[in-house]
Design a protein around this nucleic acid. Sequence first.
DNA 1: AATGAATGAGCCTTCATTCAT
DNA 2: CATGAATGAAGGCTCATTCAT
Lengths: 196, 196, 196, 196
Amino acid sequence: MSRATSRHNGGPAKAGANRAAIVAAGRAVFRERGYSVPYSAVAKRAGVSQAVLYRHFPSKQALAMEIFAENFEALDASVQSAEGPGAFFAVWETFVEEIVESTAIIEFVIAERVDLPEDLGGRRLEAVFGGALKEAQEAGLVDPDWTMSDLLLITRMLHGVMIGADDRQQALAHVTRALQLIDPRLARRRRFKEES
Amino acid sequence: MSRATSRHNGGPAKAGANRAAIVAAGRAVFRERGYSVPYSAVAKRAGVSQAVLYRHFPSKQALAMEIFAENFEALDASVQSAEGPGAFFAVWETFVEEIVESTAIIEFVIAERVDLPEDLGGRRLEAVFGGALKEAQEAGLVDPDWTMSDLLLITRMLHGVMIGADDRQQALAHVTRALQLIDPRLARRRRFKEES
Amino acid sequence: MSRATSRHNGGPAKAGANRAAIVAAGRAVFRERGYSVPYSAVAKRAGVSQAVLYRHFPSKQALAMEIFAENFEALDASVQSAEGPGAFFAVWETFVEEIVESTAIIEFVIAERVDLPEDLGGRRLEAVFGGALKEAQEAGLVDPDWTMSDLLLITRMLHGVMIGADDRQQALAHVTRALQLIDPRLARRRRFKEES
Amino acid sequence: MSRATSRHNGGPAKAGANRAAIVAAGRAVFRERGYSVPYSAVAKRAGVSQAVLYRHFPSKQALAMEIFAENFEALDASVQSAEGPGAFFAVWETFVEEIVESTAIIEFVIAERVDLPEDLGGRRLEAVFGGALKEAQEAGLVDPDWTMSDLLLITRMLHGVMIGADDRQQALAHVTRALQLIDPRLARRRRFKEES
DNA sequence: AATGAATGAGCCTTCATTCAT
DNA sequence: CATGAATGAAGGCTCATTCAT
């Protein structure tokens, strides 16, 4: 039992750990139960009180935004390390992985569409993908008609597939097949980490 | 007051009317506010008491199931009236129309996935589409690799598009574009009834 | 133990009784603990669930408004039965009695000032007092400079006196003395019902 | 870091400054948001941690008590500098100013009435006003019937007027008018500092 | 002695479900 | 068989108070 059983806290030292625990718990419950889980479930999962949850992230949106942002950082990193016409596929692969790992994030984007900061969502996506897409199109690797909007649309199509799947296993298979239906080149090299 | 039709009671005759009213109300509120509306909203819309609602459909799932089933009946009818290799597209069109009209039903299918009777969902879809798909494939009108599972998958992809759209207008545009990305032949002849 | 211990209710017949119980409970808790009591305290006092409370009065304001309205009805009745230049004092007496009985109502008026229906508050007061005040002034029974606003001001002065008192006994004495300080004629014939 | 003034600590010297900052913050937030503000708002406004706030004043009451006492000190000063039969009015004016400036303090006195030390409230007021009142009465400047209790009562009447006002502007006008209704001589020479 | 952080509990509101009549 | 009403419980949010460092 590593959970404190007495009344009080571990002092300031624990703060960062709690924040991390909350983010992790957020990822976990969002993945398992979707973005519509009671926000309080995150606190329960993280082993902290609701007040602490609210201190760190004053709303479910705020927490989702954080997770969202962290995902984009991974994406940015993947952009840095990829080059050439095939870069698009490398980034795309990372992107799809994230969709698979955090379906809930897309639900969040949909649910809270109203007041997302401009640099998130589509705009941010464009920053990440814009160059690589054009390059890949010029190299004839991707359908030249595709626009950023189409990529976004594909995102949503994958989302529909994700939330309709029975389990992770099936979800992976369905996402792969869905990408094949759209364009086989999008479906290559799907490799996902083992579920914990 | 010894008469059978005392104060509040319309007698057995009313039962059928109530049932129909409930189903209609269900369609309406699901469309307007999504599958997550309070079940009580259906009773209010139908103008019946909660108890009556529960008598006819003991749960929101049960009601959704009924609507779902009725949708399939419409699909069956569309199958009857279509023939030849192009029949697939006629049925498909009706099917997509239903998806667009009743996004909420798909939400339901997803939310309650657990205990859908076997004869609904995939199996039922197979009954409706099976023959037409094979015929169309033999006539070279549809990719020969496609299976019933793929159709189901496309259904889900469209669903993702639907719930991500801002409004009906955009939803239609997105669905059309999504179908084009998959196979332009699926996207032809989209014509929807005017919004009431 | 007259409280139901089993899970469910007394049927429709009990509805009116519950509503009355809620209003009575509202008067009681407002008097004892002020308008700022948790709304849930009303439910507890009335012996009903919170949901029932919300069904009957969807907000604390709504309940206060009801009590408020009932008070005005008593006031109207007092206007009907009084005539002549002295009528003003009769109505005034009833009015002060009500202030003493339901201090919380004034707190309510103050707290929710924003969206009171036009026919409540000042306007309503004017309807009740307007004629009588003018008549009394013409008969030389009341300071001719006084306006309706002044009466409202006096109301608030009495309110300050009420909420500052230690108990009902003292509150009565203070109100009487306050009225004497303003104008002895306002303070005559103070007689209040015994506290329950 | 073996120095006494380690990381976060300003040393004993800071204590007095903190205390003053807390009192000032208390005055500010009470005025702006009423006595019912979260106690934590005082800490935030003062720029200190909650723990410090609690160290200096273990409860909101304690802080309010301090402010209350300091107000009386200002009153004492005003008594010292005024002499002759008109002294009463000078002190009274200061007193009313304080009421207008710190409505919240009166809310506090009312809310926490229970355990106010005897030397605050009425008794203290008597010490301040006692002599001046008698002198003014003997000079025929004030109604000879008035007692200290009446002054307290008037205080409360003004309070009622204050908390019922929409804004400071209106509050001033209402207080002035209220004093006129009681005795015009109480209302003379109202001059308040400009709002910051 | 100050800080940052945590806790537990309270209050608000809404929903699915189940009576007595 | 329909009605109107009631219940219990979940979930959101905020606050006073109290640590470990």
